[in-house]
Simulated assay, not measured.
Amino acid sequence: MLDKKKLFVVIAALMTGSAALLAFIAISLSVEKVLLVGIFVALGIIMSAVIYGVVSSMVANSSVNEILPNEAVPEVKAVPEIQAAPAFEPKSAQTLMILQKKGRLIDFLQEDVSGFSDAQIGNAVRAIHSGCREAITEYIKIEPVRHEPEGNDVTVEAGFDPSAVRLTGNVTGQPPFRGVLRHCGWRVVKTSLPEISGGQDLSIVEPAEVEIL
C-alpha cells in the first residue's frame, strides 16, 4: 500500500529543489531568462501538486479497500449453525416403553437381584421372557443372519459383511474360512411400532403410579 507521508516528503523535496535552482539561475542569468525558467518551474510545481492530489486520493481509497490485481475477492461463507443432538431417539424410547409394558423388562433390569435365590430369579425371568417375546413378535420382525443350525460347520466366503458375521478363534489368511457356527445372529426385517400421538411424552417409558386412598 502507498505511504502518504513518504509521498509528501518526496514532493516537498522536489519543490524545495526547484526553488533553489530558480535562485541559482537568477544570480547567473538575465532577468528575462529567469522569468522563463521560473514559469517552467512553476508549471512543474503545479503538476507536482496535481499528481500529489491524485495519488493521495488513491492512497486514501486503498487504505479502506486495498485492491488486489487479477485476484478475486474471496467469498465469506457463513458458518453453518450446529444443531444440538436430541436428548433421545423417540423410536428407541418407544421400544423400551413396549418392552416395559409387556414384560416389565426395565423393572427387572433396575432391580438388584444379588440377594434373590436362583428359584426367585427363575420365576421372574419366566414372566419377563413371555411378555418381551410377545412384544417383539407383535411389533418387530426378526430373522437369523445364518440359517444353518448352530454347531454345524459353515463356510464364510470372500466378500462377507463384517457387520453381519463376526469371526473368532484362529483367524489367519484370507477367505473363504471354515468354522463352526456358534450363534446364528439376528437381523431386523421390519418394524411396525404404533403411531406416536402428538401430546405423548416419549421420555416417560413408564408413568409413576399413585394409588389414591
Results as ranks from 00 to 15, higher is better:
56 S>F: 08
58 M>K: 10
58 M>A: 13
58 M>Q: 09
60 A>Q: 11
61 N>T: 08
61 N>F: 12
62 S>G: 11
63 S>F: 11
64 V>P: 03
65 N>G: 08
65 N>C: 08
66 E>T: 15
66 E>I: 12
68 L>G: 00
71 E>D: 06
73 V>Y: 06
73 V>F: 07
75 E>P: 00
75 E>Q: 07
76 V>C: 01
79 V>G: 03
80 P>C: 00
80 P>E: 05
81 E>G: 08
84 A>H: 05
85 A>H: 05
87 A>S: 11
88 F>N: 08
88 F>Q: 07
90 P>V: 02
90 P>K: 04
92 S>Q: 10
93 A>Y: 13
94 Q>Y: 06
94 Q>N: 04
94 Q>T: 03
95 T>S: 09
95 T>K: 10
96 L>T: 03
97 M>Y: 12
97 M>D: 08
99 L>Y: 06
99 L>K: 06
100 Q>A: 01
101 K>W: 08
101 K>Y: 13
105 L>Y: 09
106 I>R: 14
107 D>E: 15
107 D>T: 11
109 L>Q: 07
109 L>I: 10
109 L>V: 11
110 Q>T: 13
110 Q>G: 12
111 E>H: 13
112 D>A: 00
113 V>R: 10
113 V>Q: 08
114 S>P: 05
115 G>A: 13
118 D>A: 12
119 A>K: 14
121 I>K: 09
122 G>E: 10
123 N>W: 09
123 N>P: 01
124 A>C: 04
127 A>N: 11
128 I>G: 02
129 H>F: 09
130 S>E: 15
130 S>D: 13
131 G>T: 03
133 R>L: 09
134 E>Y: 08
136 I>H: 00
137 T>G: 09
138 E>L: 03
139 Y>K: 04
139 Y>Q: 01
139 Y>F: 12
140 I>E: 02
140 I>D: 02
141 K>R: 12
141 K>H: 07
142 I>M: 09
143 E>N: 06
143 E>K: 12
145 V>F: 03
145 V>S: 03
146 R>P: 03
148 E>Y: 04
148 E>I: 00
148 E>L: 03
148 E>S: 07
149 P>I: 11
151 G>D: 05
152 N>M: 10
154 V>S: 05
157 E>G: 01
157 E>F: 03
158 A>T: 09
159 G>K: 05
159 G>M: 01
160 F>V: 00
162 P>F: 02
163 S>E: 15
164 A>N: 02
165 V>F: 10
170 N>G: 07
171 V>E: 05
174 Q>S: 15
175 P>F: 07
176 P>K: 04
176 P>L: 06
176 P>F: 07
177 F>G: 00
177 F>T: 02
178 R>C: 04
178 R>G: 12
178 R>V: 13
178 R>A: 14
179 G>R: 04
180 V>A: 06
182 R>F: 09
183 H>K: 13
184 C>Q: 15
185 G>V: 04
186 W>A: 15
187 R>P: 00
187 R>V: 06
187 R>S: 10
187 R>M: 09
188 V>W: 02
188 V>F: 03
189 V>N: 06
190 K>H: 07
190 K>G: 05
190 K>D: 10
191 T>W: 01
192 S>R: 11
193 L>F: 15
193 L>C: 01
194 P>A: 01
196 I>D: 04
198 G>I: 07
199 G>K: 11
199 G>V: 09
200 Q>G: 01
201 D>Y: 01
202 L>N: 04
